[in-house]
């Protein structure tokens, strides 16, 4: 049940795009962890491409809004972290390919 909800949350987060790169935040590797508890509470740990990014708070709120809109989610908690720092190596192969223009 929780595994299914986690997958639904991850799928939903693919609709949130990083405004600068135009790629979804899951394929960019900005979502570090999605933890779902039995009561429908979801904890997301995420990062941004650069610390201090002026879009960081908007991204955090955007993720929170998106998670809360998933059926079965009772509460959402989104934490920003820069440990470890994001690097382009965290992107999916597909996202890297698109940014390389392949």
């Amino acid at each position: 049940m929780t595994a299914a909800l986690e997958q639904q949350v991850r799928d939903a987060l693919r609709l949130v795009l990083d405004p600068e790169l135009g790629e979804n935040i899951v394929d960019l590797g900005l979502i570090y962890d999605v933890a779902v508890s039995g009561d429908g509470a979801v904890k997301v740990t995420m990062t941004t491409t650069t610390p201090g990014c002026p879009a960081a708070e908007y991204l955090r709120e955007g993720v929170s809004n998106c998670v809360l809109a998933v059926a079965g989610v009772a509460a959402a908690e989104v934490t920003l972290t820069y440990e470890p720092m994001w690097t382009p190596a965290r992107m999916s192969a597909a996202a890297q390919g698109r940014l390389r223009g392949a």
Binding site: P19, G22, P54, A55, Y58, E61, S64
Partner: peptide, 22 residues
């Protein structure tokens, strides 16, 4: 373009479809 995007679309990110900065 980036600052304009933040002002205009930042508050609705995750709620609705938004354009990219470019």
């Amino acid at each position: 373009a980036f600052l304009t995007w933040l002002e205009c679309y930042g508050p609705v990110l995750g709620k609705t479809a938004t354009p990219r900065v470019q």
